[in-house]
Structures are given as structure tokens and as C-alpha cells.
């Protein structure tokens, strides 16, 4: 039951059955916890009232909202977003902040950024931190994105901040696409990361946000970051590193020593599993209307003081 392969990543009928079972579970607040590098289910139906939870710092992740998308794969992006916002607003343990791992908009249009900002305000948290996706960098690079989401006034898409004893780092890996290869962070950003980490003690939990996975999920579709190893090498000395990615619209994870990398569900439309047979390209997957809400969702992450592991709960917007 704790097999990570049972996470909602697939669209074939056999897996869908597993998925609907899991949807029930996650709705009942199964907590996925990473202990010693192996994710496992540790609690169910908790109201967040126990003493560990009371001391915990919790935040939510959303991803790939693609505001402005209005095609067959999901004709009601805004409705889905509002259900996700309601789920986050209803969490027993109030999240300190929300992180958005990119593709805030679908086509980088000013009106899409405007609508996204308004929708994000419907989530009742103090701060929403974003990183850009490639859909936020169309036509004029990140100018439009930074006009709306310049988190520290430096006019750079990468930044860091500290909250709840955690060092958060937002990275951008959506500008350096080169023919035939995967994207990259680039030397300037990696130099900045090295500088940034120089003042962070190795015992500080680190959470890294980046849109495209910082590990190679599937190179044929560009699902990876060519120079991610350079960034991960800088993070390796830290006792607790959680990398949160989006882009691939499904939950996958990889653990390398103290570094746990997780991709997230989208709030817009599903994408195929890596190299999924019979599909052949990473475009929106059209599923029966009743299935869509099981494939879109949010994530809650909890840092429990005195523990290395972060607890993760992935909740589809359709749940019991």
C-alpha cells in the first residue's frame, strides 16, 4: 500500500482503479512521509491536532495552473483552481505560505497574469511564492512574469527567503532552451545559488522550487535540466533538501541521499506518463470528464521540528 508506484501518475485502466482508491485515501488525509529516503504512509484521518502537528510548519504547493487555457482537455481551469483554493483554505493546519512551481499562465498574456494574481488572492495565506514556467516566458522572456511576480524586487526570477526555519530557494530553468538538448539553469544562476547557500548552515532544511524537474525524468521530451547536477552538488551537504518541481503534471519522486525530488500534479490538465505507449508526445491528455478531477490536485508539505523528513499529502481536487 505504500508503494510509491501507486501514486497517481498513470492513465491506463488498471492504474486508474488504484488511483480512485488512492483518491479516497488522500481525501482522508493520508500523510506521505519521507523517512530514510523511502516514502511511506504514516497517518490517516488526522485532524492535525496532535502535538507534533501543532509544532509543525506547513505550506502548500500548487503547480501548472495554465491560466488562459480553455481547450478540450479542461474547459474550466478557473473552476478547478477555485476547488483547489477551497481545499487549501480548509486545511486543518493552516499553511504559512503557498508555493507555485510554474506555468502560472498558459500564454504569458498580461490579462492571464492579471487573472492569475486575482485568483491566487483567493487562497487565504500570507504569501504566494512562484517560479516561472516556460509558458510564463513566451515572446518577451520573463518581462511579463517579473512585472507581476518579482518577489524581492531584484528583477531576477531566482531568489531565496527564510520562513519557519526553512531556507526556500526559487530557481528559473525556463529560459535556456537549446536545440536538441534539455533546458538549463545557466552559470549565472548556479553562481548565485553557491553564494546564497554560503550563508545557510547545513542543518537548515532547504526547499528548492523549480518548474522543470531537476532530475532527468525523460530526456526525449525535455523533462529534465541539463546542468541540474551542478545545483544538486551544492545542496548535497545539507541534511534535509526537498526539491519541488512541476512541468510534467503528475506526481513522481526520486530520492538521492538527503535530497528528495518531487514533481506535482497540475491544476490544468494531465500529461502522459513518460514515454507513455500509444501517445508519443507530451501534450494535454483528454480524459472522461469524471476522471479529470482525480488527476489534478494540490500538495501539503509539513516540516516537523526535530525531524529530518517532510510529510507530503497529495490531494486530488476530486476527493471524498
Amino acid at each position: 500500500m505504500t508503494d510509491q508506484n501507486d501514486l497517481p501518475t498513470s492513465f491506463d485502466p488498471a492504474r486508474r482503479k488504484t488511483l480512485s482508491c488512492l483518491a479516497g485515501w488522500t481525501g482522508a488525509a493520508v500523510v506521505w512521509s519521507v523517512v530514510g529516503g523511502v516514502p511511506s504512509a504514516i497517518a490517516a484521518g488526522g485532524s492535525g491536532g496532535n502535538s507534533a502537528a501543532a509544532r509543525a510548519f506547513t505550506f502548500a504547493q500548487i503547480s501548472d495552473t495554465h491560466i488562459g487555457f480553455h481547450k478540450e482537455a479542461n474547459p474550466d481551469i478557473v473552476g478547478g483552481f477555485r476547488r483547489a483554493a477551497a481545499d487549501i483554505n480548509a486545511l486543518a493546519l493552516r499553511p504559512a505560505l503557498v508555493v507555485h512551481t510554474g506555468d502560472v499562465t498558459h500564454l504569458s498574456k498580461p490579462e492571464e497574469f492579471g487573472q492569475a494574481k486575482e485568483l491566487l488572492q483567493e487562497i487565504r495565506v500570507d504569501r504566494v511564492h512562484t517560479v516561472p514556467g516556460e509558458h510564463d516566458a513566451l515572446d518577451d522572456g520573463l518581462a511579463g512574469y517579473l512585472k507581476n511576480f518579482d518577489h524581492d524586487g531584484r528583477k531576477q526570477p531566482w531568489y531565496s527567503f527564510d520562513q519557519g526555519g526553512v531556507h526556500f530557494i526559487g530557481l528559473s530553468n525556463v529560459l535556456n532552451f537549446k536545440l536538441g538538448t534539455m533546458t538549463s539553469l545557466g552559470d549565472e544562476q548556479i553562481a548565485w545559488l553557491k553564494n546564497d547557500l554560503a550563508r545557510v548552515s547545513h542543518s537548515t532544511p532547504v526547499v528548492v522550487l523549480a518548474h522543470i524537474p531537476l532530475w532527468t525524468v525523460y530526456a526525449q521530451w525535455g523533462w529534465g535540466t541539463a546542468d541540474a547536477d551542478q545545483a544538486l552538488a551544492l545542496l548535497r551537504p545539507y541534511g534535509s533538501v526537498t526539491v519541488l518541481n512541476g512541468h510534467i503534471h503528475q506526481v513522481l519522486q526520486k530520492v538521492e541521499g538527503n535530497i528528495a525530488l518531487h514533481t506535482a500534479m497540475s491544476l490544468a490538465y494531465p500529461l502522459p506518463t513518460p514515454g507513455q505507449e500509444g501517445i508519443g508526445e507530451p501534450g494535454p491528455v483528454k480524459v472522461p470528464a469524471g476522471d479529470l478531477g482525480k488527476l489534478l490536485g494540490t500538495r501539503q508539505l509539513t516540516v516537523v521540528r526535530g525531524k529530518h523528513e517532510l510529510a507530503l499529502v497529495d490531494t486530488p481536487i476530486d476527493h471524498a
Binding site: 516556460e134 513566451l138 532552451f177 537549446k178 536545440l179 536538441g180 538538448t181 534539455m182 533546458t183 526525449q220 521530451w221 525535455g222 507530451p282
Partner: peptide
């Protein structure tokens, strides 16, 4: 030529 969003498309 290629697609800058999907560089595997050439």
C-alpha cells in the same frame, strides 16, 4: 530550426 519550448522538436 527548432521549437524553443520543446527543443527536441526539430
Amino acid at each position: 530550426y527548432f521549437c524553443t519550448l520543446h527543443p527536441f522538436m526539430t
